[in-house]
Amino acid sequence: MQRFMLKFLYVVATFKYPGIRRDLRYFIRDNYFSRLNQIRFVTKDYIARKKYKVIDFHGEFDQELRYVLPFAYWHHLNGTLKQTISCTNTRDFYFFSEHHTEQYEKRVWQAGYEYYDVPNMTHSPTFDFSKWTRVPFKKRYQNEVFVFDKPMLMIANKYNIEWDKPPINFLDIPALNRIVSTYKTKYQIVYNRPLSTQIVLDNSEIMDLNEHQWLRENHPEVILMHDLFEQHKNMVNNFNHLQLMVYANCNRFISMHGGTAALASYFGGMNIILSHPGGGMEHHFNEYATIFPALSGAQILHAKNTDDVFRYLSEYY
């Protein structure tokens, strides 16, 4: 039955979106099926409303942030969330879950395929927000600890394998130098690029950009998240907890394609996302204008190259 429905929904996607590439219609098909799958839970979700829903996910971080967490939070508010299961150091993301288990030590990107338990499970030109609610990270984690003399500018960089290719979406040292030199008088710049020991990895191998020592030597006024973690180890639960606390006090972000961009989009304000064309599916489905701003109401500025980053900085920051 499932195979028949998937074939039928692919035909529906073909007729509804004839201009979209054939391979991309599979994403639309899967989202259609995941939404239809919710029909099974109408009685439990809207009539019985007892705690029954167990949400178990260890796929890509980006997918968890965009689809799984808002779905879990909806069930929490609905009174139907029983348990959440995810990866190591995710308890603070699921602060609202009474029973959260950190079961997995590694993310497996294949685990996101055929994960039809949530009404939005992959890329799509449209999203169903009927069981999707913003998770109030900013309200939850705002604090008086990470407050500085100047407004904060968070540079959330990354440097890792993307789609089995060398790094594509990242800021190199010359770009970092230009940003810091230009904006350090206006903002307290905080730099974040987590190490492999600080987050749960998936298939994207983290590589060394050698920028941390360079920043310490050439721009000591920049605050490194690594240093904040060492300074506040006794106060925070883990590196993810630190990210939530620092990000909650920030309204200006520069972030990179993927989970880095999704997390930075959870805290309102403005978020410049560097995402080169030709890689992720966000471009094909215009998701920087749909699901990303929906995460918190943040203004998303999609930079397709480094020049766009500087153009947005000049215009908005």
Rank of each mutant, 00 (worst) to 15 (best):
D308Q: 07
E144V: 03
G79D: 05
D56C: 09
M235K: 07
V236C: 07
S34A: 15
Y247G: 06
G280D: 12
R140H: 15
V180S: 12
N249L: 13
W74E: 00
H219V: 06
L209Y: 13
V118K: 01
Y17I: 04
L65D: 01
I168V: 14
M207D: 09
I155E: 10
E64K: 03
L313S: 09
A48E: 11
F129C: 04
P70E: 07
G297L: 08
A248N: 08
R40Q: 15
V11W: 15
D307M: 01
R49A: 10
Y94H: 15
H100N: 13
F71A: 00
Q103I: 02
P119S: 10
L295N: 00
R216V: 05
E64A: 05
M245Y: 06
L215G: 03
K7F: 10
V309H: 05
L77N: 13
K82P: 08
L201V: 07
G79V: 06
L176M: 07
H212Q: 14
Q188L: 08
N37D: 11
Q38W: 03
R40A: 14
A262V: 09
P194Q: 09
A175D: 14
G258D: 03
D172L: 09
A261Q: 01
Y316G: 03
A13I: 02
H75E: 11
L215Q: 05
F61G: 00
R91I: 10
P119W: 08
V108I: 11
F96T: 04
Q38T: 06
V118A: 07
L171K: 01
L274T: 05
N78M: 09
K186A: 11
V246G: 02
F15V: 13
M207T: 11
G268D: 05
Q2E: 13
E221M: 05
P119E: 11
R252F: 14
V108D: 10
L176H: 08
S204I: 01
M256D: 00
K51A: 13
R107V: 04
F146M: 12
H226N: 14
W163M: 06
M270R: 07
K186C: 12
L65E: 02
H76E: 15
D149M: 02
Y312F: 15
H76M: 12
Y10S: 10
N271Q: 03
D227H: 10
K50C: 05
N37A: 14
Y104T: 09
G269Y: 05
I173A: 11
K139A: 12
T133F: 06
R29H: 02
